[in-house]
């Protein structure tokens, strides 16, 4: 029986290349878009499963504007078999709760017979790491957060390594299930014909209606969290600048500050 994997990918701005407008907002025009680096880790794990099981189909899924087709094409070039873009004006401005709702509606209406969902641990533009957990809850399935490698897999279950700063675990999980991965910055070599396949594979674009999503639960209006303000952090400290003549003088100043800090401690 064909093993069905869904890989969720997000197109994100390249956060290493952010420019500011004069109003301290992010200059969005001309900002490079890339596939979220953690999602490439998810694609890699899906490919590992495919080579282990053989009979396996990997679908890449993204929610976003039409432009996000580029990220999906990239996912196909890297080895996904087909791709879906969940695209609707009513999805714009979705927070994680609303996003997970949209993704879950897609799963319920289009691939309820999936075996495994793989997500990147977090998106680099939001760093919230909420969507995978939120989606797993919506679908009522078990999950492992932050896997680093696949140990063993068959159609019924898989065994994963989770390696955190506190512990290393081997966890067995019964399918259907969701795993998110902290693997990123994968050094991909696009398989022969990868880009050709990406150009010739149709990406299915689905609207809110196509996935039976209630639009009161999506987008800006369906999102409970709202940004009150976004700003460039400014650090306000009143600086005392000391330009000592020599190192002795510098270290004397530091010693007195350290001692004052320690005294403050005692009372």
């Amino acid at each position: 029986m064909c093993f069905k994997i869904l890989v969720f990918v997000k197109q994100v701005p390249d956060t290493t290349d952010i420019r500011w407008t004069e109003h301290n907002t992010i200059q969005r025009e001309g900002l490079e878009s890339v596939i979220n680096p953690y999602d490439l880790g998810a694609v890699q794990l899906a490919k590992n499963i495919k080579s282990a099981l053989g009979d396996c189909k990997i679908s890449a899924v993204s929610m976003g504007p039409l432009q996000a087709k580029e990220a999906l094409k990239e996912a196909i070039a890297f080895g996904c078999d087909d791709a879906y873009l969940l695209c609707d004006k009513k999805f714009a401005g979705s927070d994680t709760l609303a996003t997970a709702y949209v993704l879950s509606q897609f799963v319920k209406t289009h691939c309820s017979d999936f075996n495994l969902i793989i997500c990147g641990y977090q998106a680099v533009d939001g760093d919230t790491a909420q969507t995978p957990s939120s989606l797993a809850q919506r679908l009522g399935i078990a999950q492992i957060t932050g896997v680093t490698a696949l140990k063993d897999i068959c159609n019924e279950y898989s065994v994963w390594i989770k390696d955190t700063s506190a512990y290393k675990q081997e966890i067995k999980i019964t399918h259907p299930a969701l795993v998110s991965t902290t693997l990123k910055d994968i050094d991909f070599t696009v398989p022969v014909n990868g880009w050709i396949k990406a150009q010739t594979t149709d990406i299915t674009v689905l609207s809110a209606g196509d996935i039976s999503a209630e639009t009161s639960k999506t987008g800006f209006c369906g999102s409970p969290t709202q940004v009150k303000k976004a700003y460039r952090p400014v650090i306000v400290r009143h600086t005392e600048l000391i330009e000592p003549d020599n190192c002795e003088e510098a270290s004397n100043s530091i010693v007195s500050i350290i001692n004052r800090c320690k005294e403050q401690d005692d009372n």
Binding site: T96, L97, A100, A129, T131, S133, Q137, T164, T225
Partner: peptide, 22 residues
Amino acid sequence: TVNGRELAPRIAANLQIGLTAD
């Protein structure tokens, strides 16, 4: 924490409430 970051979004989805992380 490692557990808190996994737990909170599931609670939020369960109760259908907003969550601000980290």
